[in-house]
Design a protein around this nucleic acid. Structure first.
Length: 137
DNA sequence: CGGATGATTGTTGCT
DNA sequence: AGCAACAATCATCCG
């Protein structure tokens, strides 16, 4: 058994999913906190080269798989935004087992991330003052 | 023409 | 303990 088991998502799975948004008029007044990053791939916001990026969540893994299937069944849909909505909707309808499958991947990914983070911190403590010209290394 | 945003949920990080 | 920002992706839209 994994000590780090996701503590069984069944609890979470049984969470209240009943309150599905039934609001029609939604002025899309969502906070721009999430989409605040413009071009993350182009814009570098002073991030340390050792700073590990956040690993994709289980939802993202599902997205990858769902995206292919969705495009096959919906060749008309090209934008991933629409897929995201459909994916999110189906994601909530995913079976516990299916969710766990993706959660497991995400869990492993997190472990890897934590390790990268630990190394990052260690590196920071060790050679933060040192020149990080590893690029030329 | 080009940059920027929008949407999905989860997850991590910092305060 | 909780909030905030960010993780991919890409079509579409405004300037």
């Amino acid at each position: 058994m994994k000590t780090r088991s996701r503590s069984t998502q069944e609890s979470s799975a049984h969470k209240s999913l009943s309150h599905i948004s039934h609001s029609n008029s939604k002025p899309k007044k969502k906070n721009k906190k999430q989409a605040q990053h413009k071009s993350p791939l182009k814009v570098k916001v002073k991030d340390d080269p050792h700073k590990p990026k956040k690993p994709p969540t289980a939802f993202f893994f599902y997205l990858e798989d769902f995206r292919k299937t969705f495009q096959q069944e919906n060749p008309t849909v090209k934008s991933m935004r629409q897929i995201g909505k459909a994916c999110g909707d189906k994601w909530k309808t995913l079976s516990f087992e299916e969710k766990v499958a993706y959660y497991d991947i995400a869990t492993e990914k997190r472990a890897k991330f934590e390790r990268a983070m630990a190394e990052y911190v260690k590196r920071k403590e060790n050679g933060e003052l040192s020149d990080e010209s590893e690029d030329e290394l």
